[in-house]
Computed example of a mutant assay.
Amino acid sequence: MVNQVRRGSFSQGSWIGEMQQASDKSVIRSEILDPRTKNLLCTSKISDYVLSNELVSMALAMVAEDQQINDVLEELFAEEGNELHIRQADLYLSEGEELSFYEVLLRARQRREIVIGYRAANAERAVINPPAKNARRRWSLKDAFVVISEKE
Score class of each variant (00 low, 15 high):
A59L: 04
L84P: 08
D48W: 04
E79Y: 08
N39V: 15
V72C: 03
L60S: 05
L51M: 12
S57M: 08
A61E: 14
T43S: 09
S47Q: 13
L40R: 12
K45W: 11
C42L: 15
L40Y: 15
S47R: 13
N53C: 03
S47Y: 06
V63H: 01
D71Y: 09
L51I: 03
G81N: 00
S57Q: 09
S30F: 13
G81I: 01
K38E: 06
E80L: 10
L73W: 03
N82T: 14
T37N: 05
G81S: 02
N70M: 10
L84N: 09
N39T: 15
L60M: 14
L33C: 06
I28H: 07
T37R: 10
I69Q: 02
N70I: 03
L73E: 03
E75L: 08
E74Q: 12
V72E: 00
E31F: 13
S30L: 15
V63D: 02
G81A: 02
L76I: 07
E65N: 15
V72Y: 04
F77S: 06
E74K: 11
S30Q: 15
Q67P: 10
V56C: 14
E75W: 03
N39I: 14
M58H: 12
L55H: 01
F77Q: 03
I28W: 08
A59G: 04
N53Q: 07
